[in-house]
Design a protein around this nucleic acid. Sequence first.
DNA 1: ATCCCTAATGAGATTTAGTATCAATAACAA
DNA 2: TTGTTATTGATACTAAATCTCATTAGGGAT
Lengths: 133, 133
Amino acid sequence: MQERNTLQKRIVHETLIRMCNHPTADEVVAEVQSTYPTISRATVYRILNKLADSGEALRIRINNGADHFDHQTFPHYHVHCSSCGKVADVTMPVKELGSMLSDTSGYKIQGYSLQFDGLCPECQENEEIEAGA
Amino acid sequence: MQERNTLQKRIVHETLIRMCNHPTADEVVAEVQSTYPTISRATVYRILNKLADSGEALRIRINNGADHFDHQTFPHYHVHCSSCGKVADVTMPVKELGSMLSDTSGYKIQGYSLQFDGLCPECQENEEIEAGA
DNA sequence: ATCCCTAATGAGATTTAGTATCAATAACAA
DNA sequence: TTGTTATTGATACTAAATCTCATTAGGGAT
């Protein structure tokens, strides 16, 4: 017997799919607990890790902050707003970055992580308002 | 009076320069304490943060693990060995990644972080030995 | 339908990396 | 030499995530 189809796994996965805003693990915990209050934080973390490991979800590692999760697994990147912390999708092909490296470093490249930091449209507006005042 | 030239700052910076292996903050703490045992962990963290903020050192954010520091500040990237955790330099121009994004996402891009993961030459060897045995 | 094995869960302790607090210390300008 | 205050050291604290382990429940076997 290998992998059991538990209620908790179904709920966490469904919840992640329903939340389209790249939630953190703790945000998923809160959301799941609103309908299933007895689920444990450790369980949600375990299930999200498993989803990320199996490729059913993406783990977005944010500089400094908590990991975010994305149920969309097609190849894309993320922008992280340095002001409000929001995470958004970016679809941009960046080809061959990894393979370009293999000969120069001696490392066998397994992957790379590319993450952008910036200001989201809302925070840009707020900045302008503050500057104007 | 703005910035004071303290013994601690000199020692931490010198130590970082002397350690060419992209140490973590705690590795710097250990190294400094070997000759100056009374220095505080908080002090080393503060000084490294200041060096990174002022551009006198680079902060290398490793997925999952502790930040590493690099006294070399010319533009380059890093490879992180997923097996032993070692960090190595990669010099490869990646131009315009940020500016390519500005129109597609609505974000005002302030920067990006690009980090490679792979196996260092030593760990590749170990892997082959294990596979052969 | 029941039993049994063990994967998975829940609760809480633990770890790791880093920051905050604050009294004591020590640069450095006067 | 002195006074101001940036900086330090010690420690408490926080955040994110993992670990531990007794208990629960999925699902194959009977």
